[in-house]
């Protein structure tokens, strides 16, 4: 689980036995985690998995029911949000809509008592950092577009010169193209500033693009943590595998792939996770005749929804628009057991 990058950098934030319950509901359940200095860590989970509560605990906006939180070895468990050297970009962004863009960004400095002239100079610097024109200083936040508002929220968080930036799904309400552009910008900003980013999202795709490490959360617990490659290549269980988008999950029963009626290899475990792109038309170590049920063009590739002779649904992805795979036609598809990720549950 520990990768080379994590080992080489000191730990900035350490959680031990972190829990939070609201009445009967255990939102965060005994989470222990070390976050490295300068790392981009993304916590991914479906809604209700406790990821938002976890980040609010880290920011100090909620206090934990149990557990300890160490910042560079110092216990900050009971330190409130306004005295933690961290800043959060909120899901709603929470821009102060009665203040101008400049007043928003300089807020943290104003609270610290920085003189107005110094604040203004720093705001101009921050506007450049997030690639906004300096003329935005006097603009009302309500006159800014969605992408501009994201950048203002970022600049405002950076203005407090935080050791760690938290992001609580800031891109969840943004349209696809802008989201893609901002993901790249977040990553770029992370590299340029060298700060530690802890990012919350429900989209593993978003996490894959940006993160050094990804933690998968389910029912208040972190069920897997690792690099994007590790998560993608060796999912811990069917839940993580399914979170990656559409995959084939084949149950192994009696030494055979159920639904395919083909023998499974000796190292087989309970379930075989097979990426759609690993199930290819033509030859393979394991082959089966599959019927095309549906064909979806996805631009550079085509998704084929297939059915085995015994009725098991499968999915394959091929390059190009693959016109020969008409609905109702049957082809031989195959895969190599080397491409299977085995999971037990």
């Amino acid at each position: 689980m520990a990768d080379a990058m994590q080992d080489s950098r000191p730990v900035i934030l350490s959680l031990a036995g972190f829990s939070k319950s609201f009445g009967e509901i255990q939102a965060v359940d005994n989470v222990s985690l070390d976050i490295s200095e300068g790392e981009f860590l993304t916590i991914v989970g479906p809604s209700g998995s406790g990821k938002s509560t976890l980040v609010r605990l880290l920011a100090g906006l909620e206090s934990p029911s149990a557990g300890r939180l160490l910042l560079r070895g110092r216990d900050i468990t009971v330190i409130p949000a306004n005295r933690r050297p961290t800043a959060m970009v909120f899901q709603s962004l929470a821009l102060f809509d009665h203040k101008s863009v400049g007043e928003n960004i300089e807020f943290a400095m104003k609270m610290k008592g920085v003189p107005p002239a110094d604040r203004k100079a720093r705001v101009h610097e921050l506007l450049r950092l997030v690639r906004l024109p300096e003329s935005f200083y006097a603009r009302a936040t309500t006159q800014c577009s969605g992408g501009e508002r994201q950048r203002i929220a970022l600049a405002r968080a950076f203005a407090s010169d935080p050791d760690i930036l938290f992001f609580d799904e800031p891109l969840s309400a943004i349209d696809y193209r802008l989201r893609k552009a901002l993901e790249v910008e977040f990553k770029d900003l992370h590299q340029r500033t060298g700060r530690t980013f802890v990012y919350i999202t429900h989209s593993l795709e978003e996490a894959m693009v940006m993160s050094d490490r990804i933690a998968i959360m389910q029912a208040g617990q972190i069920i897997q943590i690792g690099t994007p490659e590790e998560i993608y290549g060796k999912p811990a269980n069917r839940f993580v595998a399914g979170f990656l988008g559409e995959v084939n999950i084949l149950e192994v029963a009696g030494g055979h792939f159920a639904g395919l009626d083909r023998p499974a290899p000796a190292n087989a475990r309970r379930y075989a996770v097979l990426r759609p792109e690993a199930l290819r038309p033509g030859k393979g170590d394991v082959t089966a005749d599959l019927t095309v049920v549906q064909r979806l063009m996805l631009g550079s590739r085509t998704q084929l929804f297939l059915r085995s002779p015994t009725g098991a649904p499968l999915i394959s992805e091929v390059a190009g628009d693959a016109p020969e795979f008409e609905r109702g036609t049957t082809y031989s598809f195959g895969f190599s057991p080397d491409n299977i990720a085995w999971v037990d549950e």
């Binding site: 920011a59 800043a87 821009l95 102060f96 807020f107 943290a108 405002r156």
Partner: peptide
């Protein structure tokens, strides 16, 4: 009528309880 997350954001950016009231709650 206003996003109360603004108060949490102010707190997160270092404002005291009283500063939150003066800077966010009262003007809003």
């Amino acid at each position: 009528g206003y996003d109360v997350a603004q108060e949490e954001a102010a707190l997160d950016l270092g404002a005291s309880r009283w500063q939150v009231i003066r800077e966010i709650t009262m003007p809003q």
